[in-house]
Design a protein around this nucleic acid. Sequence first.
DNA 1: ATCCTGTGAATTTGATCAAAATTTGCGCGC
DNA 2: GCGCGCAAATTTTGATCAAATTCACAGGAT
Lengths: 236, 236
Amino acid sequence: MALAEESDWNVRAMNTQADGQRAFAGAPVHEQVYQRFRDMLLFGELEPGQPVTIQGLVDLLGAGMTPVREALRRLTAEGALEAQGNRRIVVPQLSQSDVLELTQARIALEVPLVGTACTKATPKAIAHLQAIDERLDTAIQRGDIRQYLVENHAFHAALYDLADAAIFKALIDSLWLRFGPSLRMVCGQVGTRNVPDQHKVLLEALASGQQEVAMQAIREDVEQGMALISAAIEKA
Amino acid sequence: MALAEESDWNVRAMNTQADGQRAFAGAPVHEQVYQRFRDMLLFGELEPGQPVTIQGLVDLLGAGMTPVREALRRLTAEGALEAQGNRRIVVPQLSQSDVLELTQARIALEVPLVGTACTKATPKAIAHLQAIDERLDTAIQRGDIRQYLVENHAFHAALYDLADAAIFKALIDSLWLRFGPSLRMVCGQVGTRNVPDQHKVLLEALASGQQEVAMQAIREDVEQGMALISAAIEKA
DNA sequence: ATCCTGTGAATTTGATCAAAATTTGCGCGC
DNA sequence: GCGCGCAAATTTTGATCAAATTCACAGGAT
């Protein structure tokens, strides 16, 4: 399995140390496994079609079987993983119609959410978004695919947080998990340099409160991004 | 303590089990637990705010701990249950802003999906929907709240199945799970007789291929239904 | 081609450990 | 003498694990 092998992730060791107040020190193991695997899906460390075995994760992360099970079940419920009827779990492979449907769903949810975000944007929040976008540009110039994916996700996440709409956010997160694994294919074929985005337009519209412009910008951002995925699938 | 209430729904649960869900006989236990609890949420057998304990389900469903855990983890991932930071799980209580957001999300997803369904509706499928709607009316006339909820859900599920859009369907299912527990409050206060619906308009529009009319009908159906929930919450 | 069987993984259970909530009990002030 | 609050003990529940069981698939024998 192609899972990254930096797992000095022995949870037990960390917990038996001083009862640390660190980021995930107190969190349940199943939560840690979930977060870790979720990042791997979102940031291109797993390939579509790749089988995911419970045993594999148990061995790799040094965690017990039950927490791994729960994390996988949770990800399956979110559509991030696909349970084939027969006890097998795989990273989903998107068909062209899947991509089309994902595009429509993203537009249906993200466009109105940006509309809401536009009415609640503060100068401070906009500055935060700009800072993320600058790091995003830096990652592109360096050709750092992984960092690009991280910052791009952070940008959208921060944007949607503005709207203060937990339910929309959860639905959108679910969608991102579905196409996350396909992004690596895109970057592998297109390269990060040619990735277009509407972030600059969006930021200006947010700053000046032009709701319609912002909504059109996110719509195009979504369409462009998903079109890249569609093209990448076509070639493969 | 909430033991009284818990034993209440648990008893009901055992009764429904005795009635026999042979359809899931061969399915894994965690799947069966999931289906059962999901039905309980959707069809008003659980109250918002009610605590859900793992061990309670273990004892009363006679299942092991791991399958129950997995089912609950899955339901929390779908937003059907709420994990309070401290290891406790409860049936979520919707605030007014939650209801508003749910309404917007339902409209954002269900309206376009009905648009798609409209282009794919066959006479046979429409007849099926009409059959469900008739059973729904019968349930209303008999004042059978549970059956009304079942048929209403079946109607919408069959409608969305027409569109053949698995991702939209999954997102919408997630939303239904969120407001399911609140429906009982609605029926308890309003009674089933006064529940309005746009199903007749919708069916005619489907049959004649009037896409815009169908979309407007589902929009109003959603708005009316959610308005009832909003009103019920206001009184409580 | 069908059936049998071996292998490996998923599923499930019961036990064990840890954390949270509840109750208990004691000292203190009124 | 009578509550009141805080802290320790109890008890309930959740989290985790290791072992036993079940299941699906692959290869070989009939």
